[in-house]
């Protein structure tokens, strides 16, 4: 006992050091578990609330830009409504039996959008995160997709009651199933921690013909994103000799440097979809 006490006394500094570093490592490793990530992240009520206040002040400086993008989106949506209105009579006048068989799917809206505001984000780390001002109270849950008017932003990782934390495309953990518009070839979009304006589309077979400048959009394979949401444009294509897969550099359509308003996508068939998988 005496020896033990002496030992502790002699190495107390080292022991304290090891204890603190062990706690840090445990936090680092356990961060992926859901509960902890809510407690120790910008999604908790202290730091989340703090960022909200800061954002309320900083938000005034780019109101003009945000307004412009919102009104542009408004216009696009109005156009879409007009287009759909124009199509409606044609659908109604088709045969009655058609109407009956299509009735339930016609009124079933699989995806709903929840508007949210970015209150904190980073672009200069290997693992960037985004914090939103909406949480489970607004129906936001982990694994929901996040889009901005320009395209795909990322996927919700965790949510507290009033805040949610998002893993954007520009996080090395991110992996999103995407499709090339012209050839319909699929691949997964990852980030190489280099530039926040570009990402890498992997696993596209080498025989696919890819044009520089063509659009890359979501595949709709997972329940997270509907298909055909733009992700970016092809900037560069290289063939990896060993694997015979293409490595496609994609210019992202979302400017992560100035992200303000986003929409979170709720998929109504989510539980059903997961049960099937």
């Amino acid at each position: 006992m005496e020896n033990l006490l002496q030992f502790i006394k002699r190495f107390s500094l080292l022991l304290l050091f090891l204890a603190l570093e062990t706690v840090a490592i445990i936090m680092l490793v356990q961060f992926n578990s859901y509960q902890r990530s809510v407690l120790f992240s910008s999604a908790n009520w202290v730091s989340g609330g703090f960022y909200q206040v800061v954002d309320a002040v900083g938000g005034y400086f780019n109101l003009r830009e945000v307004n412009q993008s919102l009104s542009a989106e408004n216009a696009a949506l109005k156009n879409e409504i007009e287009r759909l209105k124009a199509q409606q009579p044609a659908l109604v006048s088709s045969t009655d039996s058609m109407l009956i068989t299509t009735a339930d799917t016609a009124y079933w809206q699989p995806y709903t959008y929840v508007a949210a505001h970015v209150i904190q984000h980073s672009i200069n780390k290997a693992q960037n995160y985004i914090t939103l001002n909406k949480g489970t109270d607004d129906g936001i849950l982990p694994d929901m997709g996040v889009v901005s008017p320009d395209g795909v932003v990322g996927i919700v990782k965790s949510a507290s009651r009033h805040y949610a934390m998002v893993i954007p495309i520009i996080n090395v953990q991110s992996r999103i199933s995407c499709r090339l518009d012209s050839t319909q070839n699929f691949g997964s979009l990852v980030w190489d921690a280099s530039d926040y304006r570009t990402a890498i589309l992997q696993e596209v077979p080498g025989h696919a013909t890819v044009k520089i400048g063509e659009t890359v959009s979501t595949s709709g394979f997972s329940a997270i994103f509907p298909s055909n949401i733009p992700v970016g444009k092809v900037a560069d294509v290289t063939l990896i000799e060993e694997s015979q897969f293409l490595q496609i550099k994609v210019d992202l359509s979302v400017d992560f440097g100035k992200l303000a308003e986003v929409n979170v996508i709720q998929f109504a068939g989510n539980t059903e979809f997961k049960a099937l998988q």
Binding site: E21, L28, S47, S122, T131
Partner: peptide, 17 residues
């Protein structure tokens, strides 16, 4: 710093060291 930057444990480790 970790809590605010969403980098759990990273700053803690480096700082203690």
């Amino acid at each position: 710093v970790d809590i605010f930057a969403n980098t759990m444990g990273v700053h803690t480790f480096a700082c203690v060291l």
